[in-house]
Simulated assay, not measured.
Amino acid sequence: MSGRERRREAPADQSALRDGLTPAQLKALETLEHFRWTLKFVRRPMFQDPVPVVFDRDGQRYAVLRSDGTLDESPGFRIRD
């Protein structure tokens, strides 16, 4: 098996990403988008709430939107390069 990354960065369907987010998360996301943060993906662990991951405008920092709408910049996991 080659060591090449097989995942591709596909354009995210924003409406599909927002499905299942709480009203507080959606409101916080709307505010973050004014500061050019972007919802890149949503982790959907089995039997747990969705975990939306947002990136800053430069793509250097990421954070998680908690279910109450708060921003967690130290979510406890790393994003692979």
Rank of each mutant, 00 (worst) to 15 (best):
12 A>W: 04
62 Y>D: 02
11 P>Y: 06
10 A>Y: 13
78 R>N: 13
41 F>H: 11
48 Q>P: 00
49 D>K: 00
67 S>G: 09
64 V>N: 07
37 W>I: 06
24 A>I: 06
24 A>G: 00
41 F>Q: 03
51 V>P: 03
76 G>S: 07
23 P>G: 02
45 P>L: 10
43 R>F: 05
31 T>M: 10
12 A>Q: 09
54 V>P: 03
15 S>L: 11
58 D>H: 06
6 R>S: 12
18 R>L: 06
81 D>P: 14
10 A>G: 06
38 T>S: 15
72 D>C: 01
44 R>Y: 04
78 R>L: 14
28 A>M: 05
58 D>S: 11
45 P>Q: 06
11 P>A: 10
63 A>V: 04
52 P>M: 09
76 G>Q: 05
67 S>M: 09
32 L>T: 09
50 P>T: 01
12 A>L: 05
9 E>T: 12
66 R>T: 10
45 P>W: 03
43 R>D: 01
70 T>S: 11
79 I>L: 14
62 Y>N: 02
42 V>F: 06
61 R>C: 07
42 V>D: 02
31 T>Y: 13
15 S>M: 09
9 E>A: 09
76 G>C: 05
33 E>I: 01
52 P>E: 08
32 L>D: 05
29 L>K: 07
39 L>E: 11
8 R>S: 01
49 D>S: 00
16 A>H: 06
81 D>L: 15
81 D>N: 15
40 K>L: 07
81 D>G: 14
26 L>Q: 11
44 R>F: 02
79 I>Y: 11
29 L>I: 07
66 R>M: 05
13 D>S: 10
4 R>Y: 12
27 K>W: 04
79 I>C: 08
7 R>W: 00
7 R>Q: 13
81 D>V: 10
64 V>H: 03
36 R>H: 03
26 L>A: 05
44 R>K: 14
59 G>D: 10
31 T>S: 13
56 D>L: 04
35 F>E: 15
32 L>F: 09
59 G>H: 05
16 A>Q: 14
42 V>C: 03
61 R>L: 02
20 G>I: 12
18 R>I: 02
74 S>D: 15
27 K>H: 09
64 V>I: 07
8 R>W: 02
65 L>T: 01
38 T>L: 01
48 Q>I: 01
67 S>Q: 15
6 R>F: 06
61 R>A: 06
74 S>G: 06
39 L>R: 02
7 R>L: 14
27 K>T: 11
57 R>M: 05
56 D>H: 04
67 S>Y: 03
33 E>M: 05
49 D>C: 00
80 R>V: 15
58 D>C: 05
23 P>I: 00
45 P>N: 03
66 R>F: 01
81 D>R: 15
80 R>N: 14
81 D>S: 11
57 R>E: 12
31 T>E: 13
62 Y>E: 03
53 V>F: 04
66 R>V: 01
66 R>L: 13
74 S>V: 13
57 R>W: 08
30 E>R: 14
16 A>P: 00
70 T>F: 10
64 V>Y: 03
22 T>D: 01
71 L>V: 09
37 W>C: 04
31 T>F: 12
70 T>R: 12
14 Q>I: 07
13 D>P: 04
62 Y>V: 00
52 P>W: 02
80 R>Q: 13
42 V>E: 04
71 L>N: 07
77 F>G: 08
65 L>P: 08
31 T>I: 14
23 P>W: 04
44 R>W: 07
